[in-house]
Simulated assay, not measured.
Amino acid sequence: MTSSAFTESSLTGIPVKRGKVRDVYDFGDRLLFVATDRISAFDWILAPGIPDKGRVLTQISRFWFERFTTISNHLLSMDPADLPLPADTDLEALRGRCMVVRKTEVVPFECVVRGYLSGSGWKDYQATGAVCGIDLPAGLKQSDQLPEPLFTPATKAESGHDENVSFEVMSQAIGQELADSLREKSVQIYQQGSEYARERGIILADTKFEFGLLDGTPILIDEVLTPDSSRFWPAETYQPGGAQPSLDKQFVRDWLETTDWDKNSTPPVLPDQIVEKTREKYFEAYKMLTGEECTW
């Protein structure tokens, strides 16, 4: 292993909220997003972390934020030193894994877009012939491309599992106009990202976006089209009719499924070879999407 995992940041005296992966520090009108190397699966944070994973997530998000010019986003700077950091801050530990962002009113729904039949969507289709209540043609196979991308929102959970809900539930909660706008923007961004990724040899099977309101206008926040928030499949090996090789954390989920873990107790420690292979997959996704080598 080339480096150890960075699993928790610390900024003396700055209010912080810790998610499954990110530590978010509140500087008043701005936030500092620190992507750690924590990795989660089945609503559990696993041990150990994946070295440099947070840097990959941050730099892929930066790449997409800069690419998507038709919608505003929360990114202000990639340099944490743009904020009044405590004097004892370890800047080297934060290098490459930070975003200084605008503070917004977070929309309390994950905006999920599915372009292929996989994951919970495949299980739903097998049981009901629909995905999240949206009827689909009969006879589709696992990993088939859908006739058109589906927008299937989910509630945002601070901890625990996000829950799929109908578009109507989302509309009632945040208003029809905003819900319609977020659906349109989410599908548009997915399609743009999917077209680009396919040119780079990656199938973007599905993903989730988050939005925040800034002066009443929705902007893109959090992470965008990363191996944590999306299913990335190598296009050269794509073959519908079963599960696909992945360039995301599905690899970790698949390993966990081979153990006797009941998903209700402390998860098993990830073996060194699973940690290293996962790191390689994240690095490969970064290189394929950006054309750049990871230099960390």
Rank of each mutant, 00 (worst) to 15 (best):
G129V: 08
T290R: 04
Y282H: 11
L140A: 11
D222C: 02
G242T: 09
R183N: 13
P86S: 11
E236K: 15
T152R: 09
L31Y: 10
K123H: 10
S118A: 15
D52S: 13
R231Y: 05
Q244L: 03
P268L: 02
T258Y: 13
E177D: 14
E8L: 07
M78D: 13
D262Y: 00
D162R: 14
P147R: 06
D82R: 10
A235D: 13
E66N: 15
F68C: 07
E66V: 05
T155D: 10
S9Q: 12
T266I: 11
T70G: 00
T217V: 02
G19L: 03
L289R: 15
L31E: 11
L247R: 14
D180H: 11
P147I: 06
R200C: 10
H161K: 12
A138E: 15
G49I: 09
E199C: 01
E66P: 03
M78G: 14
A87T: 12
A5N: 00
K249W: 01
F27I: 04
S77F: 09
D228M: 03
H161S: 10
K277Q: 15
F283V: 08
S166Y: 04
L178T: 09
I203M: 12
G160H: 12
L85I: 03
L91D: 00
A93C: 02
I274K: 06
E292V: 08
